[in-house]
């Protein structure tokens, strides 16, 4: 029986109830998604015409010939957005496990999380007042 053989080789992966086992369907659905997209593109390739021409492949710019390149220089300040984003992503990583246990630990832990979020919030307000988040 193939599943038994697989189970003996990958016991932790084929057991559906284990911690890693619960991610087997997640991996499977990612594979399903990849297969779905591939099948769509393959079917599309069979059905569609393909008559490329230089005019057709010209960059669209409201009907006139494109001026310069589409890849413009971007103000370096823009990377601050990325930094802020990472800060809050890390913040979330701490917040989620805390959310499941805080009640048993009482007010002290709520205060601590308040300090943690407060420091980040002050940083955010600082960035905002400096105009980093302004749209210009």
């Amino acid at each position: 029986m193939p599943t038994a053989a697989a189970a003996s080789i990958f016991p932790r992966l084929t057991r559906m109830d284990g911690y890693y086992g619960s991610y087997v369907p997640v991996l499977a659905i990612i594979v399903v998604g990849a297969v779905l997209v591939t099948a769509m593109f393959l079917g599309n390739r069979l059905l569609r015409p393909s008559r490329p021409s230089p005019e057709k492949q010209l960059t669209y710019e409201s009907g006139v010939d494109p001026v310069g390149t589409g890849w413009a220089q971007i103000h370096l300040r823009y990377y601050v957005f990325a930094y802020l984003y990472v800060v809050f992503a890390v913040d979330a990583v701490f917040l989620f496990p805390w959310a499941t246990v805080y009640a048993g630990l009482g007010w002290v832990t709520v205060g601590e999380m308040g300090v943690f979020i407060g420091i980040i919030a002050v940083g955010l307000v600082y960035a905002w007042r400096k105009g980093v988040l302004a749209w210009t």
Binding site: I30, G33, L36, R48, P49, S50, P52, K56
Partner: peptide, 28 residues
């Protein structure tokens, strides 16, 4: 499904082609 697939000559072809899949599969 029957429409021609036009990739602009100036575009970064591989990323351009992959982007729709990256946008869609996460929701699945």
């Amino acid at each position: 499904a029957q429409k021609e697939d036009v990739v602009p000559a100036a575009a970064d072809g591989a990323v351009f082609r992959l982007a729709p899949a990256v946008a869609m599969v996460p929701y699945l």
